[in-house]
Design a protein around this nucleic acid. Structure first.
Lengths: 191, 191, 191, 191
DNA sequence: GATGAATGAGTTTTCATTCAT
DNA sequence: GATGAATGAAAACTCATTCAT
């Protein structure tokens, strides 16, 4: 039941937004009553926090698997990290959107909590880039923090428009992103 | 007065979010009464729509100046378009954040309206890229729609973390973005 | 309207108790809506606090008039103080009962506040007794603090059973209390 | 278990009040579940009634022992009756406070029931006074009903402020009360 | 004896909106 | 132009109670 509530809430939060989704809406759509909701959650806020924490924690765990893989070059790791994010769109697109959109509806304390995990995720990513720079895989003249913010912006925003069932597959999307990031748009054949 | 209400609302919507900001909050912070609000606006919704429309319309107009400049290469135009967006952070950061965050609180009809202008802005951007490809400025093997989504994601998300008063200037930020986009990260000196 | 709400609330709190009286009950009985209630009060708690504070503050003011009357002996003052309390039963019996019964439903902070005023009232009373002892009006062998607690207990509890429209008048009731307190029950004619 | 529930409830009702104590609170603090509560009690109301009835019935029984003691003068009996009440503060202070404060949360029917026992207790007390008057122990010019209300008010209210572990012992407190009641405050040495 | 899930009726509170003045 | 009183619909939340197991 707890699971059902979370699942349905993510659906509704994605569709209508957190603040426009009432507890009544949630329980109506699973055929339960408000009492039931409050049997499993102390507040609407707690539900939102659960959604956020379980999302980002899972993402962080999956990131760690990639980070610890000794056989990958830095470029490979970046590719896999981008794929990790894009793949979430297909498997957990709604959660992903709720996660990015509704964080401001968390109470300050929980925001801090979630943000520190997000920060860890970002810094891990940045570390991969910096390792690649050290090893000579990437150019060293660009600020790695800003590059990572840029890459994450590019990739994360896909949640807003990317349709995994459309004409571009996950792999193709990641290829394009990687290609821009690694090689840029300049037409070198010209030279 | 109307102007004052809008300005204060943007501040509050940025700080607390649209749904958590009450009309009472708005009029309190400008020392007016609810009656006054409803003298100038028919509804809270109308206020939000005004904020969105005026933001995106202004952006579109500024975009058009760039598009019609005959002296610029495609690359120059892309640079100027990116600068246009980044510059908004300093001059209209709050509006920019409200614009990206609160669109979902618009009524369906206004969302359509705003989205069609956003779409126009994006397609204009894409047209610049495609012109550059045609002229041989850029490689032709990447889907331009996705590339533009990527670039906009990268640039737009700056609202979330970029501090124009920090150690990286607007111009430097745009330089970095342009460098990635045009040249990529690969270390060519290696070759 | 604010006044009407307070008046009706006192009636209802007296009749049914604070926790069993809903805002709905209050506004129903004055033909208003919940919105109206919250236009005048921020919370049910604030209403209760208002009732308590205005009651005890008024009582304290009236006490001060008596305390400062230079023409009265200590015994006269005690009599007048007792009469003050008893008289409240007729004029503000409901408030008086709400005041004694519902204080525990105030939030901690307000309880403190009210209690410190109650304390002041009691200590003022005690001072009168002690002055009388110093002047030889009363015996000096009894702890004045406990005597005052006793007197106040005796007098205050009248709220629970005394009917000012019954066969014993206010003055008669005060006479009896004064007689016990000053002269005791012992049959001296015996001696 | 039943006993445990009652004991814990008295604690909580004393601390937070009947209406602010939920069944959940009660069972939480004894490590049981709501099901258990309803196995032993049909309702929260029944629990409150039990607390009230057992308290007042016990008090009445103890009163009767005193009443039937042939060796005591009326004054002795009054002293013992007052001591009976004061002593309850140490042995059953919480019950005593719950008993006085929460009676209004009983349903009408049970209030009647409890009140008729309280009435019996009071009339028994009054009877002792009247016997004393008849025997010439006490003056006959004061209404015995009101005198008893006064004495009970004085004594009962001790629940509110008297600390049996403080500097005044039970016996001393009763002495003071008795002294006021029997001899009054007037300074007779003056005459 | 005891439990835990579920309920539903009720509670306080919020707030966009209206409207007479 | 502006106000302030009033509204009503809906929100989050509480909790005594039921009941199958």
């Amino acid at each position: 039941m707890r699971r059902t509530i979370i699942k349905e809430s993510i659906d509704l939060f994605d569709k209508k937004g957190y603040s426009k989704t009432s507890i009544q809406d949630i329980v109506n759509s699973i055929g339960a009553t408000k009492g039931t909701f409050y049997y499993y959650f102390n507040s609407k806020q707690e539900l939102l926090r659960d959604i956020h924490l379980s999302y980002i924690q899972e993402l962080l765990q999956e990131q760690e698997v990639i980070l610890h893989d000794q056989n990958l070059t830095s470029k490979d790791k970046i590719r896999k990290l981008i794929l990790l994010i894009i793949r979430k769109i297909r498997t957990h697109g709604k959660s992903a959107r709720v996660f990015t959109r509704e964080i401001r509806h968390l109470e300050e304390e929980h925001i801090q909590n979630v943000n520190s995990i997000k920060r860890e995720f970002r810094l891990n990513f940045q570390k991969v880039l910096e390792d690649g720079i050290d090893k000579g895989e990437f150019r060293k003249d660009l600020r790695s923090d800003i590059v990572i913010f840029g890459i994450l912006g590019m990739v994360n925003r896909s949640y807003n428009w990317y349709n995994p069932d459309g004409e571009v597959s996950e792999e193709e999307l990641v290829d394009i992103y990687m290609d821009i990031i690694i090689n840029g748009l300049k037409n070198k054949s010209e030279i």
